[in-house]
Design a protein around this nucleic acid. Structure first.
Lengths: 242, 242
DNA sequence: CGCTAGCTGTTGTTATAACAGATACACGAA
DNA sequence: TTCGTGTATCTGTTATAACAACAGCTAGCG
């Protein structure tokens, strides 16, 4: 990988979207949690691109804190496999390979269909109403071409569904998987790619209303596969092979 | 949970097995990595029991370091779900519930059979020889009733098999799952519980030699299920229900 | 005697500064 | 021109100390 100063500057330019923390808020708020949340959100909506480097001091300056909380947040994200620690101990967003992408999809299919199946057995009417509301806002974002809002809503839809399982084991794993895929969505989802997602979400909702776990799981599966196909179709040339 | 001083002292007594780090070794060694490795090993072999509390300063004193590297190691283990952060931000080993145990087993079955299947397609002769060697030492440990060595060898056997897949996605997840189950093995595996594991490992090796991925996956599945049955049979009364 | 206020010791959190390793760049010699 | 070397500066790591939140205990008051 190119590690010259100029390329590192270029890689760091993507940090501009990160805003300083508003301090003095509610007491007891840990700084590293806020920094973690900010980075995590940026990861999931594809604002940070693979190869991006995160020097601790740069981020500390950006957030207006000392090194420690930034370090904590980065190390947590590394532990969750959302970020990668290079041999020189600098953190960056891992690049994507075909093998990793396919493995991520395989594991997501396995776990998320399980979660969807179990969720549809436990779901209540109010949960479905909330999912419909989230789906509305996702569709609205798609119509306006607001990719960021679209991805936020899509994430919210899936995890609102999965969270009715109260799973303490699978949920954290799936969240980690989404963070690993997120950066690779950068610049992928134009209006074209949102059509299938909308149809699949409608199928999910329909199957949920009639409490059909198998159909819910199938629809979730289709949703993931279709999204992967969109990415593969547009980004087939963008993988970094080892 | 009881949080009186006396019970906390009792919970901390389990830390005695942790030894100070031998400093001044190879340069470039990060202290928090060594602390992490020590805790991780203790977790996997069941030396640390559920409910165990880890005050940073106590561990720092035990390891002979300052607070920072201990904090790093603990936060990493929390991120990997091996440890749990209590509301007061103290770190402890999570207690086990039936639901969590069953979910852990389900996910492990799903992922580890996949890994076993893929491994048996890629495995080389030298890998099999090494697995046989590990299996030998496991059997020896079982005969001597050395539970700790037995669990170490069992862990080594499984991950030596899985690692031939070079999986960057599933392997870290499965390691996390083993760390979550480890503490619950405390005091479970007497000589009685090791018989099935030995048979299953022999089945795995036999299937590997004839390159039969399905049979390998099945044997791994049986291994996990049998181990779970041993735990359920002996510990059915020891679950902490929420 | 009971209750509340304040002290005390505990916990994790963060800032600052000193440290160590790695890298890039510039200067000088072949 | 090219190669080697030293220095400046960048990186993450760790120690120390100050900080804040919390629980338990004790003393004093009602």
């Amino acid at each position: 990988m190119d590690t010259s100063v100029s390329s590192r500057r270029a890689a760091n330019s993507g940090l501009k979207g990160l805003r300083p923390l508003r301090r003095g808020g509610a007491a007891g708020g840990r700084l590293h949690d806020e920094i973690y949340a900010a980075l995590r959100q940026a990861l999931i909506v594809g604002e940070l691109i693979p190869g991006q480097v995160f020097p601790i001091r740069t981020l500390a300056e950006r957030f207006g804190t000392s090194l420690i909380p930034v370090r904590d947040a980065l190390k947590r994200l590394v532990a969750e496999r959302a970020l990668l620690m290079l041999p020189n101990r600098t953190v960056c967003i891992p690049k994507m390979t075909r093998a990793r992408f396919q493995e991520l999809l395989q594991v997501r299919l396995s776990l998320e269909t399980k979660l969807a199946h179990r969720a549809s057995e436990l779901i209540r009417q109010e949960d479905i109403l909330e999912l419909e509301s989230i789906n509305e806002s996702m569709q609205a974002a798609a119509r306006k071409g607001n990719v960021k809002a679209y991805l936020v809503a899509n994430h919210a839809f899936h995890f609102r569904l999965y969270s009715v399982t109260n799973s303490l084991v699978m949920l954290p794993i799936v969240e980690s998987l989404w963070m690993q895929v997120g950066p690779f969505l950068n610049g992928v989802f134009t209006a074209a790619g949102t059509k299938n997602a909308h149809d699949n979400h409608e199928q999910i909702l329909k199957a949920l209303r009639r409490r059909d776990p198998v159909a819910v799981a199938d629809a979730v599966s289709s949703d993931l596969v279709d999204a992967a196909d969109v990415i593969l179709a547009r980004k087939d040339f963008m993988f970094d092979e080892d």
